[in-house]
């Protein structure tokens, strides 16, 4: 089935879940938010939500610089 991932059409086999999709794309769930048809999907539902033909998936990564693990600075 055809799924739109970040605006690009991609082929996935039936019964693929959002968690599977992230695994296939080598995206760590901790590092992103996932929107399915404009609704933010709760991380807890990644493994439950199966993809459906025509779904529009947006994988939204954090942008902005994370704080270094050992330091907490104020300014970019």
């Amino acid at each position: 089935m055809q799924i739109l991932v970040n605006g690009e059409s991609r082929e996935f086999k039936a019964d693929t879940t959002v968690a599977d999709l992230l695994r296939e794309l080598d995206v760590k769930p901790d590092r992103v938010a996932v929107e399915v048809n404009r609704e933010i999907l709760d991380k807890g539902a990644f493994a439950q939500r199966s993809l459906r033909e025509g779904d529009r998936i947006e994988i939204i990564s954090f942008i902005g610089g994370g704080q270094p693990a050992d330091q907490y600075r104020d300014v970019s």
């Binding site: 938010a33 994370g66 704080q67």
Partner: peptide
Amino acid sequence: IFKHPPPPGLIASC
């Protein structure tokens, strides 16, 4: 969109 910050160290900083 993001309920909470990512765990520290997971996302690199500038």
